[in-house]
Nucleic acid binder design. Structure first.
Lengths: 100, 100
DNA sequence: CTATCATATCGACATATCTCGATTTATTGT
DNA sequence: ACAATAAATCGAGATATGTCGATATGATAG
């Protein structure tokens, strides 16, 4: 758990928004088209639509969040789905609680 | 409590170090010279010495941390003392716990 | 096997952050 | 009043981040 890397990733409004939206995909995103449910998260295109930023920017952001281990990526066919890595997010918050 | 501003301030190793050192001034800094104790925190020069960065950089960092409300500044004569704002730090951690 | 679509990567430019030395401001001791 | 000291502010150059459009990659459908 690289605390500093996570903090860098979280020092951006859009990325914070994404993390919060992913807490409740049913509420924040339209229904999935190519998979039956949100088990593996939300596809890049839905996230991109909601932010209004370019495809490359959002793909880049999601990659950053994935590298910092706060998101889990799953590929189904040509779609990539991202969901929260709840375990790492908890570790991060506990680390803050104990060490900040 | 501007969560994003605090996160930006905390996405830097040196500033994190400073915040952690200030948890225990007695242990991390030499005794105060111009005030009897660490009640109001630690003076800029002690913090600067410990980091090894320039005076202007550390003054700038401490100002950032103060503006983000995680440090409290007190002036005694020509010295400025900085200490943690425990209330705001708690608010920040609670916000993370509840909203991240 | 080719066209198409979703995503990732690349290259570039604009803006922000890091960090310094120099200068200014505030305070104190002479 | 003046010199000395601590801290804050200023100006600048180097590095990092934000963001885009263009291109590459990988998967699928025909």
């Amino acid at each position: 758990m690289d605390f500093l890397e996570i903090n860098k990733v979280l020092s951006n409004k859009v990325r914070i928004d994404i993390l919060q939206w992913l807490k409740n995909p049913e509420k924040n995103f339209p229904p999935q088209i190519n998979v039956p449910d949100f088990r593996d998260g939300v596809c890049v295109c839905h996230i991109q639509n909601k932010t209004g930023l370019s495809q490359s920017t959002i793909s880049h952001y999601l990659t950053l969040m994935h590298k910092a281990s706060i998101l889990i990526a799953t590929r189904h066919g040509k779609w990539t789905y991202y969901k929260r890595n709840e375990e790492e997010i908890s570790n991060y918050i506990n680390f803050l609680k104990n060490n900040l």
